[in-house]
Design a protein around this nucleic acid. Structure first.
Length: 440
DNA sequence: CTATGTAAACAAC
DNA sequence: GTTGTTTACATAG
């Protein structure tokens, strides 16, 4: 099956004055830029500095983003905020029906990347506080945004009627769509629910809350989604979920991150499903507890000083993670062993979007944001954030990378871009496992 | 076998 | 009760 990467972001909807749109506060921005913090660190400022007493987005009631100097322009229309043809989804098409040349593909990808940059930087306008968090989809719903301002979903001429979501798409893909159209590709869970209610039939199709469970499951399990680490203690709304830059560029991959630690040796669970289930829950619960404890214990101390140590966006999914100079001798993370990355794209056809790995392996030089032409038109805030990969590291040689051991949980890694290293301190890490299979 | 959906246990809030 | 994490199981392909 193929999940196409996003493409066709309109290039005109932001960026005229990126500088102005950036940075919730000049101070924060200054700090950020001066620190040479990574993209993700920068991104933190999207949701202002965690510990700045006045900047916690979740406690900024009365904070008027529009009123800020860096707020959205008054004429920042919905259509700008939610680009109409933000992407195209290609539901399960055989490869040969995708008649993009490599050049086209590369061009498309580049465009996605550029758009991404625009979005990322231009979207630093997100300043809403969590309480008054303006749900893009709730707004669309409640404010009766005209239909033609609502994102058009299937702009692929081959993809059927335009304007409709293929409701048969998997959760991950739907979430991806939801996030892709959200400002800063970020939403809270509740809004994702809303989006699903509005645009899909997952919700209506089930009387239970299973669909919500599935959404949560996908958010947690799919590397395309990252939690925005916002240590605003008193939010009851949970974290915000953001599309990773990789996902923005390349679409969603399989949600197989933690699969099959013990490959299903069938025949031996079904005997006593009940105890099994309970055991499973117990395991998960403990793992969750450990990880949560770990996050908590490190968040306060290391959120700023040690950006590597959290599972949330700034860290765990930080694409910069693997490129950082210092390896992190971090305490074992429960996520760990499960994050042995391998070349997801090494198997042709697997989630192969038209932009998928193999072709890039052959035809594309490693991309970096710095290489984007867009960059030249952007204020350079922090070039480190532009490099999503080490220049010395070939991320595009995964075609022949070894598969992880069968009993390793797997994180889809497409053309090396999915190298989210949340495996910090993973037991397996300490066992000397190579994380990035394609690098092996 | 993989990808996905679903249920569920569990922790934290 | 909600959110988030994890595991197990089922099923389609």
């Amino acid at each position: 099956m193929q999940w196409a990467a996003p493409s066709n972001f309109p290039l005109d909807y932001m960026g005229q004055d990126l500088t102005v749109q950036l940075a919730p506060s000049s101070e924060d921005f200054y700090h950020c830029a001066q620190n040479g913090t990574s993209y993700n660190r920068n991104h933190d400022f999207t949701y202002p500095v965690p510990y700045a007493s006045t900047s916690c987005p979740r406690s900024q009631s009365g904070f008027d983003p529009i009123g800020l100097p860096n707020g959205l322009p008054n004429d920042f229309s919905m259509s700008e905020a939610y680009p109409p043809a933000a992407y195209q989804i290609e539901p399960q098409k055989p490869l040969d029906t995708t008649d993009l040349t490599d050049q086209e593909i590369n061009g498309q990808l580049m465009q996605s990347s550029e758009d991404y940059e625009y979005r990322q930087y231009g979207s630093q306008t997100r300043l809403e506080d969590q309480r008054s968090y303006q749900s893009p989809y709730s707004n669309l719903t409640r404010d009766s945004t005209p239909n033609d301002e609502i994102i058009r979903y299937s702009h692929d001429p081959n993809a059927g009627e335009a304007g409709a979501i293929d409701k048969e798409q998997p959760y991950a893909q739907l979430i991806y769509k939801a996030l892709l159209d959200a400002p800063d590709n970020t939403m809270i869970l509740r809004d994702i629910y809303d989006w699903f209610k509005k645009y899909t039939d997952k919700a209506s199709a089930s009387e239970t809350k299973g669909w919500q469970n599935s959404i949560r499951h996908n958010l947690s399990m799919n590397g395309a989604f990252e939690k925005v680490d916002q240590p605003c203690e008193d939010s009851r709304k949970g974290f915000m979920w953001r599309l990773t830059q990789d996902a923005v560029r390349e679409g969603v991959k399989s949600t197989t991150r933690y699969r099959s630690k013990q490959p299903h040796k069938r025949g031996h669970h079904t005997q006593h499903p009940q105890p099994q289930r309970q055991a499973s829950g117990a395991k998960g619960g403990q793992a969750a507890r450990r990880s949560a404890r770990m996050r908590r214990s490190h968040r306060v101390h290391e959120y700023r000083s040690d950006p590597y140590n959290s599972r949330s966006a700034p860290v765990a999914f930080d694409p910069m993670y693997n490129t950082r100079e210092a390896p992190m001798p971090y305490p074992p993370s429960p996520y760990t062993g499960s994050e042995v990355n391998y070349a997801y794209g090494s198997k042709p056809g697997e989630f192969g979007s038209p932009l998928d790995a193999p072709r890039f392996d052959l035809f594309s030089p490693p991309r970096s944001y710095a290489g984007s032409s867009m960059l030249q038109n952007m204020p350079i805030l922090d070039t480190t954030c532009m490099l999503d990969q080490s220049p010395t590291e070939s991320l595009f040689t995964d075609s022949h990378s070894p598969s992880p051991p069968a009993d390793e949980p797997r994180t889809p890694v497409t053309q090396g871009s999915w190298a989210e290293q949340e495996s910090l301190g993973a037991p397996s890490m300490f066992e000397g496992l190579a994380y990035r299979g394609y690098a092996a």
